[in-house]
Design a binder for these strands. Sequence first.
DNA 1: GGCTAAGCGAGACGGTACGTCTAGTCTTGGG
DNA 2: CCCAAGACTAGACGTACCGTCTCGCTTAGCC
Lengths: 215, 215, 215, 215
Amino acid sequence: MPKETNGNAQTRLRPSEIQRRVLDAAFESVLRIGFRAVTVESISAETGIAKTSIYRRWPNKAAMVMDAFVFRIGPCIGFPPSDDHIGSIRKQMLALAKAFRGPAGTMIKALLGEAQFDVELAEAFRKHWLLPRREIAIAAVHVAINSGELRADVDVQVTLDALYGGLYYRLLTGSGPLSDTYVEGLFSHVIEGLRAVPRTPVSRAVEITQRKRSR
Amino acid sequence: MPKETNGNAQTRLRPSEIQRRVLDAAFESVLRIGFRAVTVESISAETGIAKTSIYRRWPNKAAMVMDAFVFRIGPCIGFPPSDDHIGSIRKQMLALAKAFRGPAGTMIKALLGEAQFDVELAEAFRKHWLLPRREIAIAAVHVAINSGELRADVDVQVTLDALYGGLYYRLLTGSGPLSDTYVEGLFSHVIEGLRAVPRTPVSRAVEITQRKRSR
Amino acid sequence: MPKETNGNAQTRLRPSEIQRRVLDAAFESVLRIGFRAVTVESISAETGIAKTSIYRRWPNKAAMVMDAFVFRIGPCIGFPPSDDHIGSIRKQMLALAKAFRGPAGTMIKALLGEAQFDVELAEAFRKHWLLPRREIAIAAVHVAINSGELRADVDVQVTLDALYGGLYYRLLTGSGPLSDTYVEGLFSHVIEGLRAVPRTPVSRAVEITQRKRSR
Amino acid sequence: MPKETNGNAQTRLRPSEIQRRVLDAAFESVLRIGFRAVTVESISAETGIAKTSIYRRWPNKAAMVMDAFVFRIGPCIGFPPSDDHIGSIRKQMLALAKAFRGPAGTMIKALLGEAQFDVELAEAFRKHWLLPRREIAIAAVHVAINSGELRADVDVQVTLDALYGGLYYRLLTGSGPLSDTYVEGLFSHVIEGLRAVPRTPVSRAVEITQRKRSR
DNA sequence: GGCTAAGCGAGACGGTACGTCTAGTCTTGGG
DNA sequence: CCCAAGACTAGACGTACCGTCTCGCTTAGCC
């Protein structure tokens, strides 16, 4: 008979269980009371897991919350498939904006805010959040260029910064809503000018996408 | 004989002098040791001005540093004039990127980072930094539309988010340099597609501007 | 036409009016919120009289409250006349105990407490409160000795310390009530042994005084 | 080999050692610079023990000094044995007066002064200083009554208030010396009148005790 | 199968800064 | 000249977390 998780309630927690409980509590706490109000001590008190055990795993609160974010959100926001490669970028932008409106947005605001004061956190954020998504997007744009959807002289990095920069700008400055309409506009304003075969005016593109959505 | 500022070194500081000294010290300290390391107490110690006097004017460190930023940077980054209205936006972007590479960039990173946890600071940052510049840019785009440089169906807000969002994205994520070349690329990728009379490929525009700069 | 108090509300207060208002406010405030909570600033705020004007008259809070005490209480607790000189001491003790149970007790607790840390206040308290009363009591005891009520070898100071010390002890330590019964007991326990013609046991004296009071 | 106290100077202090150092420093500081001038911060600075650690044990300065008093003085002033029970009270009064003339007097003045503004301190002072001594004295008086030294109708509380009240009165008001002669006088003035078999005049009793002491 | 090393909870520790409070001084401007 | 108004320096207050540490106890894993 394998030992299993051991039914004895008094038993010590397995390391993986400790990690799970801490990250869950951290995630929920950030959403509930905000990153600033969350404390290693408060997580310790809430979970009953000793501060020592938390500090053994993460050097500080930021690293812990970063892990909580990756643990819970990281893998969730994929890159939706699409017939055309350009359209798949549009779809990813819509998915990202939707995420920004929910818990993930709260976490990203906090983590990117904190990252301005913590180079290790900044590095981790780039590595675990920004780069994975960016690489997929880069590939999509490359394919779009190679397939003739976009011009050959398009600069991939610049294009993606224009597309995604707008989303992050609104998230971080709170200077406007992250609505689907906004995302469509952002996408069409940037992309239409980069197409190999130019389309009609941008606003028409917006109208089209809006018409589509209302169906 | 007017009383004047009074040459007596022993005299008490005038309120405006207190404000100036505190803001100067705050500004320099943020650049030297970083926002996190700056403390109301350290500013008090450095300037010899009582903590009480600082707290009488600003509710907390963030508000004080925000004021220091406005006091020292705020009015400096203007909107360079240009023959064409679109060109003036390009010039402002270049000026902004240059500022981002210097002290202003350090301050903005700190303030925007902190603003993620402080709604009052966020509001102040929008009011004193983002909006004034945005309004000038909006006007420039409107004029460009009315004069026929840009299409009539261009969405001003979306366009500016695409242009400036990229700059703030790189500033805050550190995901790439804020070089003039990058700015030119960002500008041309977004703008060329929005012109009433389409131009040649974006990369050609980049080449042109680069040629200009090398002269 | 004499100037009078001047109906103009805007007129400046006369010095004596300032003193009266400050002392009244100080007295009431000590009773209402306690000596510790009273502040020169709070008195200033309450009366609308500038801190400067208060500090011009009193060196600190303690001196101000001492004055308020003298101004309001000082003259109130007299030395009741009595047929026999000893009886007049008894009556003064009863009057003092009654005062101790009211506002005067609150003030004396505060002033004597504070006086433990402020020699000037201690001196003022002795001069304005303790000594005036003590001198009358000393005279009463002397007369009682000379008239043959008390023994010739009675030490006046010691006797008065025993009589009044008990009252102050209870006031300051809160180790028991300052009831009339207690005062009668204290008086008779000390005095009976000092009479030239010894009386019956002390408890009988207590019974007698109690009988008197019930009539 | 037992672990022992560990000779390593670099080791952290044991809790009991922290307590001892703080209380010692508090005691000495009160004597040296006075209760008012003593500060939790100054004790922290002097001992090198963190303010936090002090506040973890005591809620404020008064409680800390109270503990310092009990720790150093509390158990020292006993109740000297004597052949007769009344004489043992006299001896205790002499011992107490002697203590009042030294460091204990300084501490008691400060604590009882502060206790006028701090009910918790007042309670602690009664519990740790006044009551233990009072209970022994009560017992002594009871024995004296039962053995026939004192009258049966003597009120113990009143008697002790008369005896000890005088001592505290002089300590707190500074209205006279706390000399042995004074104590003898106080004792005999109060006690002689309460004896079952009356003695000669009080002043004679004083003379006798003085004669004894000069031998 | 017993010993050892590591992980664990609990929570005290030294530290830093917070934002508040009060004291007592000083300046300004009005009457 | 005296006042009110109120800003100023000075410095202690008591709190909150930080990240480190000791302390026993428990549990695995290694011999």
